[in-house]
Simulated assay, not measured.
Amino acid sequence: MLGLVQNGVGASILTPIISLLIILGAISTAVNIISGIVTRCVNAVERRMDRSAKKAQEHLGRNAVFTAIFTFRAFAIAQFGLMTVVKKGYAYLGYAAFITLFVPFVVHAVATKGKEI
């Protein structure tokens, strides 16, 4: 988009506007992603709680804690670079998948003698 605007009519006016819209879109997406993961985590924690009075009383605090955690994680990923995180993370992701997916699948298949696969 920015390339088209810079080479077209009204480039001096439209280039800053498009740049600002790209930045606002990135911020909006980040806010929505963090909000979604915070909501899911808080709901998961509150589902395990017994008393509804305690849920309502500490709901805002849990939201603040999870928001701080996920905002810090996003900031850390931005600081270290996504490719570095992906390169290191994928090395361990294979091991994690082996332990959490493959081994239980094989154990279940052996235990049920292949009837429930």
Rank of each mutant, 00 (worst) to 15 (best):
M1Y: 01
L2H: 07
G3I: 02
L4N: 12
Q6C: 01
Q6V: 08
Q6I: 03
V9Q: 11
G10A: 10
A11Q: 10
A11S: 13
I13P: 04
L14Y: 07
T15F: 04
I17R: 10
L20N: 15
L20D: 13
L21Q: 09
I22Y: 03
I22T: 06
I23M: 14
G25W: 14
I27C: 06
I27M: 12
I27Q: 04
I27G: 08
S28H: 08
S28A: 09
T29N: 08
T29W: 15
T29F: 15
A30F: 04
A30S: 13
I33Y: 01
I33D: 09
I34S: 05
I34C: 11
I37G: 11
I37L: 13
I37K: 01
R40Y: 14
R40K: 14
V42P: 08
N43I: 10
N43T: 14
A44T: 12
E46R: 02
E46C: 00
R47S: 12
M49F: 00
R51T: 07
S52R: 09
S52L: 05
K54M: 03
A56S: 11
A56W: 07
A56T: 01
Q57E: 00
E58W: 00
H59I: 06
R62H: 09
N63D: 11
N63M: 09
N63I: 11
A64V: 12
V65P: 10
V65T: 13
F66G: 01
T67S: 14
T67G: 08
A68K: 14
A68R: 09
I69M: 13
T71E: 08
T71Q: 13
F72K: 11
F72A: 15
F72Q: 11
R73V: 15
R73A: 15
R73K: 15
A74L: 15
A74F: 11
A76F: 14
A78N: 02
A78V: 02
F80W: 04
G81A: 03
G81S: 04
G81N: 05
L82G: 15
T84C: 02
T84A: 02
V85K: 10
K87V: 07
K88P: 01
K88T: 07
G89D: 04
Y90P: 00
Y90W: 05
L93R: 03
G94D: 03
Y95I: 06
I99G: 00
I99Y: 05
L101K: 04
F102T: 14
F102A: 14
F102N: 05
V103L: 15
V103D: 02
V103T: 05
F105Q: 10
V107D: 05
V107K: 02
V107Q: 03
H108L: 02
H108N: 04
H108F: 08
A109R: 04
A109S: 04
A109W: 04
A111R: 01
A111Q: 02
K113A: 05
G114R: 00
K115Q: 08
K115Y: 00
K115F: 02
I117F: 14
